[in-house]
Design a protein around this nucleic acid. Structure first.
Lengths: 122, 122
DNA sequence: TCCCTGTCTTGAAGTTCATCTAATCAACGA
DNA sequence: TCGTTGATTAGATGAACTTCAAGACAGGGA
């Protein structure tokens, strides 16, 4: 299920680990970045990611769903969006499905937003 | 024009500067965060923000618009979204309008995504 | 094999968003 | 005062997104 539904390239050429502010993003890099931010642009998904990441190791879908007021299929849909953005990965083990974060991906977008010292002097 | 169109609270209570992974986000914090990510979830806006932030100090709208293939009003719309998300601010000086980044805001969302060491060990 | 539980996928309805054109507003100079 | 230039706002349209209900799929136990 999990392994490679991820379609986004983890990094777009030279824009890897380059803070957004060091040099203007090219169109391709912007499209990649925007796709990841779009995955984060929903309160349910942000909370899901937060819960998955704060779980320490991994977390079962059955522990996530009851925390929300939306239906199971909706949670499943949001998890799929996070998965396709490369932010989390999952695996079925027996009856249950477990999710865990992809730290490299989180670090990448975090770095993308890093503010260079030169911009902090104003 | 600029000063206070910003409607988002810069920070939601205890979630201030708390990495997404240190503790699960509450609904309010998730809504705030999602609103900012939604502002970044468009390639044009991401490039606009990149250009504004990489300009060093500030940049004129007239230098931004020609770099895109969309119309002026569309650029203006996207700049408004970035403004309302608190990511940039602007000021008219004579004929031209200048934009600059709000580093605290960028740092806030960057920190929100920071991955704690505990999550990097798997 | 059959049924039950848990999760995901599909299809449809309603809503939100990106974009355009046209109109409006602000500053400047003749 | 009027016309020009630069930027934003308003309204309309088509595309994309969120959500749910219904059905399908996977695994476990009788």
């Amino acid at each position: 299920m999990s392994k490679q539904e991820i379609t986004l390239t983890p990094v777009s050429g030279a824009s890897c680990c380059t803070p957004i502010s060091d040099a203007a993003l090219d169109s391709a890099g912007a499209a990649d970045g925007a796709a990841v931010f779009r995955a984060l642009a929903d309160p349910v998904r942000l909370r899901l990611l937060s819960m998955i990441t704060s779980a320490g190791d991994e977390i079962c879908v059955c522990d996530l769903t009851p925390q929300f007021e939306v239906s199971g299929p909706t949670i499943s849909h949001h998890l799929k969006v996070l998965r396709e953005a490369g932010l989390v990965d999952c695996e079925r083990r027996g009856t249950w499905v477990y999710y865990w974060p992809v730290p490299e991906r989180l670090q990448w977008i975090s770095t993308l937003l890093a503010v260079p010292e030169t911009a902090l002097t104003r």
